[in-house]
Simulated scan of single mutants.
Amino acid sequence: MFTNWITAIKAHDDDVDTLTKLERSERMSKIRSKNTKPERLVRSALHKLGYRFRIHARNLPGAPDIVFPSRKQVIFIHGCFWHAHENCSVANLPKTRRPYWRKKFARNKERDATNVRALRKLGWRVFTIWECETSKPDKVAQRLSRRLGPPGKPSNA
C-alpha cells in the first residue's frame, strides 16, 4: 500500500509538467554549466581591472569558475535559480514537481557547501558571486578589487 502511494505521487509529479519529454529535453539542453553570461561578465570585468586567472579548474573541488593560483583564491559564479539563492527574485521554486525541485536545490546547496569546505581545508579563499549581482557590473568590479587586492603578482607570492 505504501509503495502504491509513492508511485501515485511520482506519477502525479510527472504528469504535471506542461511540456512533452522532447520539449523538456530541448529546453534543458540549452542550459549551460560553463561559460554562462554571468561568468563571461565577471571574467570581462576582471580582465578590464588587469587580473589574470584560470577557468574551470577541474583539479580543485567543485571545479571553480575562476581560479587565481598565485593568490590561492577561487570564485564561483552561481546561477540564482540552480543554486537556490535565498531572498532573490530569480530563485523561485517552480510551480510543478515541487518535491523534486526542493530535493534538487537541497542537493545543489549541500554540494556547494561541501566544495567550499574542501577548498578552505586545502587553504583556498572562496568567493561567490551570484547571477543577480552581475546586473550591476560596477558594484561587482568594486567587490572583486577589494577581495583580490591590486592586480599583478601578489606581494606574498
Rank of each mutant, 00 (worst) to 15 (best):
His47Ile: 01
Lys48Leu: 10
Lys48Met: 10
Lys48Cys: 07
Leu49Pro: 06
Leu49Phe: 07
Gly50Trp: 00
Tyr51Glu: 04
Arg52Tyr: 07
Arg52Ser: 08
Arg52Asp: 05
Phe53Gln: 05
Phe53Glu: 02
Ile55Pro: 01
Ala57Val: 10
Ala57Tyr: 09
Ala57Thr: 12
Arg58Asn: 13
Leu60Asn: 06
Leu60Tyr: 05
Pro61Asp: 14
Pro61Leu: 12
Gly62Ser: 13
Ala63Asp: 09
Ala63Pro: 00
Ala63Glu: 09
Pro64His: 04
Asp65Phe: 01
Asp65Ile: 00
Ile66Thr: 03
Val67His: 02
Phe68Pro: 02
Phe68Tyr: 13
Pro69Glu: 08
Ser70Met: 14
Arg71His: 11
Gln73His: 14
Gln73Thr: 06
Gln73Asn: 11
Gln73Tyr: 09
Val74Ala: 09
Phe76Ser: 02
His78Phe: 14
His78Asn: 15
His78Arg: 13
Gly79Cys: 11
Gly79Asp: 05
Gly79His: 01
Phe81Gly: 03
His83Leu: 04
Ala84Met: 07
Glu86Asp: 13
Asn87Met: 12
Cys88Phe: 03
Ser89Cys: 10
Val90Leu: 11
Ala91Ile: 02
Ala91Val: 04
Asn92Cys: 11
Asn92Pro: 07
Pro94Ile: 01
Pro94His: 02
Arg98Val: 15
Pro99Ile: 09
Pro99Tyr: 00
Tyr100Asn: 11
Tyr100Gln: 13
Tyr100Glu: 11
Trp101His: 05
Trp101Gln: 00
Arg102Tyr: 12
Lys103Thr: 12
Lys103Leu: 12
Lys104Arg: 14
Phe105Thr: 03
Ala106Arg: 08
Ala106Pro: 00
Arg107Phe: 04
Asn108Cys: 03
Lys109Phe: 01
Lys109Tyr: 00
Glu110Leu: 15
Ala113Phe: 08
Ala113Val: 10
Thr114Tyr: 08
Thr114Phe: 09
Asn115Glu: 14
Asn115Ser: 14
Arg117Lys: 15
Arg117Ala: 15
